[in-house]
Nucleic acid binder design. Structure first.
Lengths: 242, 242
DNA sequence: GAACTCGGTAAACACCGTTCACTGAGGCCG
DNA sequence: CGGCCTCAGTGAACGGTGTTTACCGAGTTC
């Protein structure tokens, strides 16, 4: 079964140990506590040995980011799959709430991945692509926008949005879903982008405690924001009204 | 003229030196470079001497945050004062753009004040109150919302919003402007809050490079967002249309 | 002028990331 | 099997960090 040599197995095992330990330190005691010596101590080796696995502490943190992104991706995807495939509002609420809950429960990890100045994450927005991009596209694919967003996008944004449109269509296609440009139109792309701005904005403000006043019930505010975002998409399935 | 003793003058001067040096290190070489020894070296004293001025490095950073908030407050206020007092859209654009430009030009300071997990800023959202709160309230005071926002706020948010309403009214009053509850109604409060979410969200995403794809013209996107926020307030002064 | 305050110092402690020469077990090949 | 090579892991060291301690000496007060 195991093709790997003894050495390779041991190495893989140690690497898992290192990542798990580093992750635990990050979660339990903050980013400053993720120390090479502390990790080594917990794993049962010495600090210089870690350099057989990572180029530097910064490199280790970068890989930790990848792990975190992967986990978050899986958690959100699982949440999405748990919803009825035709109930888009339920999907949006489920994924949005889960993201918020995760961020609040793991502030250090959130800060590391979503609010670090040093470009720890490989490429611009790459990690995010894996997480939300396909979810958003999948949502639209599963339930196309019933009407085009009235206002059209300004010329200065069109090129960017069109590029993003192709990325999203391609991403969704890799998951086996075909979606047309007319369905995932530029207005929809822009709205998805703005939704991310609001989602991220609320969560980050809450995690960092930077709301301008004490919000005693942030969950209600968050839910209302999600509902508003859905409403602007005319996705709320309100039956015809006068 | 100077009532202070020689010692007091020297102490105040040294303290200014320390803060200025720390600030320079933060701006030019990042938060990690703000080292007690580096500060001391530049000021011309030794590291332990800094403990005569601050309890710890963390304490020093907290006071640095205060300085930054104060400077930002002054910069934004100046920007506001430079606008025609009756042109609310111009004021919003000016202040919003200035905040974004500042954040992009001073990422370390932005991260320290607006995206640090440790509660470096004194009380929840206190610093922010000084900066944006009064500006937002001032904007509304200078040009009341022409129509009440149609949707009313949910019950679960009403208490929080009402508290915030009073804080804003009080804050503006201290600046000599009287504003009524009917003008700064709960719908307006909620919209201000949501505007902050979007403003902060966009700026933070841009500073941290966490947009889901490369935005080649973020300024245009930002301006559009501001315009949209204004439009939702019916503040764009569009003359009557068919 | 004595007593006191207090900013500044040097030395030390425990920690940090990182480098380096070295060891010794694992794996490969004749 | 023996010899060689690879490489995870080591201990010592370097220069850096925040922080504590005992001490000095100028500034201030009485």
């Amino acid at each position: 079964m195991t093709e790997a040599t003894r050495r390779e197995r041991l190495r893989a095992e140690t690497e898992r140990d290192i990542r798990r330990t580093a992750r635990a330190l990050l979660v339990e005691r903050g980013a400053d506590a993720v120390t090479l010596r502390a990790i080594a101590r917990a794993v049962g080796i010495t600090a210089p040995a870690l350099y057989r696995y990572y180029d530097s502490r910064e490199d280790l943190l970068a890989r930790l980011c990848d792990d975190i992104c992967g986990d978050l991706d899986r958690a959100l995807s699982a949440e999405l799959d748990a919803q009825a495939s035709d109930d888009v509002p339920a999907q949006v609420f489920a994924v949005g709430r889960r993201f918020r809950k995760w961020a609040l429960a793991h502030p250090s990890e959130f800060a590391l991945v979503f609010a670090s100045t040093d470009g720890r994450v490989k490429e611009e927005g790459d990690q995010f692509g894996k997480i939300f991009l396909q979810l958003a596209a999948g949502l639209v694919a599963a339930h196309p926008f019933p009407k085009p967003v009235p206002e059209d996008v300004p010329e200065s944004l069109e090129a960017d949005l069109r590029a993003f449109q192709h990325v999203m269509i391609e991403t969704v296609r890799e998951r086996g879903v075909e979606i047309d440009e007319d369905v995932l139109h530029l207005g929809a792309i822009y709205h998805i982008l703005q939704s991310w701005v609001r989602l991220y904005g609320h969560v980050a403000l809450e995690v960092f405690g930077r709301f301008p006043f004490v919000v005693s019930n942030p969950e209600a505010m968050f839910d209302r924001m999600l509902g508003q975002m859905l409403g602007e998409l005319s996705l709320t399935h309100r039956p015809d009204r006068p």
